[in-house]
Write a protein that binds this DNA or RNA. Structure first.
Length: 211
DNA sequence: GACGTGATTGTA
DNA sequence: ACAATCACGTCC
């Protein structure tokens, strides 16, 4: 111990064994750390979105029940749910609620606090460091998440873990409608830290090209 | 504002 | 089998 870096225990599984609407704001300011091939990138979460489960939330991937893709969301809490979308992007969620019940929190944006060089190399399109993990697919890319990371545990103190961070003052908490969802717009289940440059700009869902 | 890109899923 | 959709990012 002495003057070396103190080991920080990851957040316990009980942290995730709650309603996503409770877990989501509590995630702000925490730090997701991933070590891959000896390279560490850690991201302080600044923007997240809560998704409920079957029959509760039309915007949730689990709204219509368990499918091969979303089965991790029905598993035990404290695991990573990674999905592939738009033919090119990955996005990551943290699974909430007890096993058998679905729900999760989408990691929308964060600040790279460790491994800037590694994150830059994974995100060559980012001109500024604040863009490295600004947006869910960018965050996943900076963390090098892919299909193989679907279902990974973040509570066991392995190469992937969620660490406590400096608490966010309540006055800085903001909520609003989720981004990019066409249903469930009335539910203000997006949470972010006010004044953070890493928070993705809100763009209302726009209808895609029609034939 | 437009488009890439391919898995997933509901519908038939 | 088929076609629409998609919790997005990049460049114009």
């Amino acid at each position: 111990m002495l003057h070396t870096a103190t080991e920080v225990a990851p957040l316990p599984r009980s942290f995730f064994d709650r309603d996503p609407l409770v877990v989501a704001p509590a995630l702000l300011g925490t730090v997701l750390r991933h070590e891959l091939d000896g390279q560490v990138v850690a991201i302080r979460l600044t923007e997240v979105e809560a998704y409920l489960g079957e029959g509760e939330d039309p915007a949730s991937h689990t709204h219509r029940g368990m499918r091969p893709r979303n089965k991790v969301m029905f598993g035990p809490p404290g695991h990573l749910y990674v999905y592939f979308t738009y033919g090119m992007h990955y996005c990551a969620n943290l699974v909430c609620r007890p096993e058998g019940m679905s729900g999760g929190v989408l990691l929308r944006a964060g600040e790279v606090v460790t491994g800037l060089e590694v994150a830059r190399s994974r995100r060559p399109a980012s001109k500024r460091d604040i863009d490295l993990a600004r947006g869910p697919a960018r965050l996943a890319s900076a963390m090098a998440f892919g299909r193989e990371d679907d279902g990974r545990d973040v509570c066991s103190g392995t190469s992937l873990s969620l660490l406590p961070g400096k608490p966010v003052p309540r006055a800085k908490l903001r909520t609003g409608p989720r981004v990019g969802v066409s249903v469930g717009v009335e539910s203000p289940w997006r949470y972010w830290i006010d004044g953070e440059p890493t928070v993705s700009v809100y763009r209302p869902a726009v209808a895609r090209r029609r034939p």
